[in-house]
Design a protein around this nucleic acid. Structure first.
Lengths: 238, 238
DNA sequence: CGTGCTATTGAGAAAAATCAAACGTGGTGG
DNA sequence: CCACCACGTTTGATTTTTCTCAATAGCACG
C-alpha cells in the first residue's frame, strides 16, 4: 500500500498533465502523494450521493464520471460528465450537491477535504490552478445551459456528440471510434430530453450517415461539418 | 476624480461585505483602491459584449447585471443575473464569453485584468475568496441547468421568482415589494421559455393570488409555500 | 397626444413527451 | 451449450406542452 501511494504523484497526475498538480514541483508532489490515496473501481460504482457530507474530493486519473441530481418527482438531471484530470466533489457546501457515479472502470485519487484545503493554503500555484479549472467548468456549464435552454432536440444531440469528442481531444489523442459509455437515458438527462428523443435523433443521424456505431457504445463522427451546422441550428433537417 | 478613487475601498466593497475584498485588511484595501476605478452608469449600459477582448473585470457595488449569449439564429440565452458583491468578466478566456448589460442604474468598480491578477498573486486570501465565489457560481449555474432541463414552464417561473427573492436575501434585507427590473423576454431567455409563456404563467399566479404586482416591475410573493411546491413540481396546477 | 415598447391574451401549429410494443444483446443458470 | 431473463434500445401512435403567429391593450416618453 505504502509504495503505491508513495510512487504515484496523485491528484490528477496519473500520467496526465491536465490535473490539479500540473504546476507543482517534485517535492510538493511527494507531499501530496503522502496525503492522498490511489483507488481503482469498476463501472457503476457510486463515489458519493447528493446530500452526503462532503468530506473527500476526487481527482480522476482515468475513466468517466457522471454527475447527476435527482428531482423530487423522480426525474434526473445530469449536471455533467467528468474525465481524466478533472476534480470531483470539491465545493463550498457541507454536503455534495449531486450524485457521482462511475460510467466506466476508473482510477482516481481520493483526498480528505481538510487536507486538500491545507495543501491549497501551502501551495498558491495549486490554488490558482484550481481556480482556473473552476472557471473553465463554469464556462462549460454555461455553454450547456445555452444548449439545453435554446436548442432543438437534434441540435442538442449533435452538440453533445461534438462535445464528447472535444472532451477526448483536450486530453490527448481522439480515440477512433469514440467510446460512449453513457446510456440513451444518461444522454437525455444531460440534454433535457427523453431517452426516446435521443434514440430517434441518433437513428436519424445514422440513417443520414452523419455518424456510425461500429460497435456497442462505440461511435464515429463521419460528418463533423454537418453535425456542427446542426448543433448551431443552421439547418433543420435536410 | 482622484479623491473618489482613493477614498472608496473598491472591488465589491462599496459598503457591502459580500465582495471579493471581504477578507482583506486596510492596507490591502488601499492598494486595491489605487488600482481600480469607481464607476456609476445608467440602465441598459453595456459593460462588454461577447467576443470583446477580456481586458477588465467588474465588481458590482449596487444594481443588477444581465449576462447573456446570442445564438447564431438570433435567439438569446441569459446565463445569469448578477447583483451587488458579484464579480463579472473574470475568466480564463482571452475574450468575454457573454454580453453584460445593466438592467438598472448601477455602481461598480472596474479593474484591469492584468492588475487584478497581480493583486491575486500578492494576496492569497483574495484568491481564495475568488475561488469560493466561483464555486458558488458554479453550483448556482448547475441549479439553473436542472430548472431549465427538467421542470415545467410554471415550475421554472416559480423557481425564478423564489431565486430572485433569495438573491436579495443573501445580500441583506429583502425589499418589499421586490424590484424586478427584467422584462418578460429576459426572464424567458433565462428560463428557456418564450416571453408569452412567462407572461401566461405570471398571469396565472396573479389570478391565484400567489403573487401580486403592486406596481410596474415590483413584485410581492404572497404565497411562498405554493410557489415552492410549484417549483418542485409537487403540484401541477390546482 | 401620439409613438414605440412591453405585456397580455387567444387560436392554431409544432415539437417533444408519453404510452406501448417489439427487438437485441449480454449475462446467468439449467 | 443453449435458453431465458433483464435491460437498454428502437420504433410507432397519440397526447401534451409549449411555441408561433396575431391582435389588442397598457405605459412611459417625447
Amino acid at each position: 500500500m505504502r509504495d503505491a501511494m508513495m510512487t504515484d504523484p496523485c491528484i490528477g497526475c496519473g500520467g496526465r498533465l491536465a490535473g490539479l498538480c500540473q504546476p507543482l514541483d517534485t517535492s510538493a508532489l511527494d507531499e501530496i502523494s503522502s496525503e492522498s490515496e490511489r483507488v481503482t473501481q469498476s463501472a457503476r460504482t457510486v463515489l458519493f450521493r447528493e446530500g452526503d457530507p462532503a468530506v473527500r474530493a476526487f481527482s480522476i486519473g482515468a475513466g468517466i464520471v457522471k454527475l447527476s441530481r435527482l428531482l423530487s418527482d423522480g426525474k434526473q438531471q445530469v449536471v455533467g460528465f467528468r474525465f481524466a484530470g478533472d476534480i470531483v466533489g470539491y465545493g463550498t457546501g457541507k454536503t455534495y450537491p449531486y450524485d457521482a457515479e462511475l460510467l466506466t472502470g476508473a482510477s482516481f485519487c481520493r483526498i480528505e477535504r481538510s487536507r486538500l484545503d491545507t495543501l491549497l493554503r501551502r501551495h498558491p500555484v495549486m490554488e490558482r490552478r484550481l481556480l482556473d479549472m473552476c472557471l473553465q467548468e463554469l464556462a462549460a456549464t454555461q455553454d450547456q445551459l445555452v444548449t439545453v435552454g435554446r436548442r432543438s432536440a437534434e441540435a442538442r444531440v449533435a452538440s453533445f456528440l461534438l462535445g464528447l469528442e472535444e472532451a477526448y481531444r483536450r486530453r490527448g489523442a481522439v480515440p477512433d471510434p469514440l467510446p460512449m459509455p453513457m446510456t440513451r437515458s444518461d444522454i437525455g438527462d444531460f440534454l433535457g430530453l427523453t431517452l426516446e428523443t435521443v434514440s430517434r435523433s441518433l437513428s436519424h443521424f445514422k440513417k443520414q450517415k452523419w455518424i456510425e456505431e461500429p460497435a456497442h457504445q462505440k461511435l464515429r463522427l463521419s460528418d463533423r461539418a454537418m453535425l456542427t451546422e446542426l448543433a448551431e441550428g443552421m439547418v433543420q433537417d435536410l
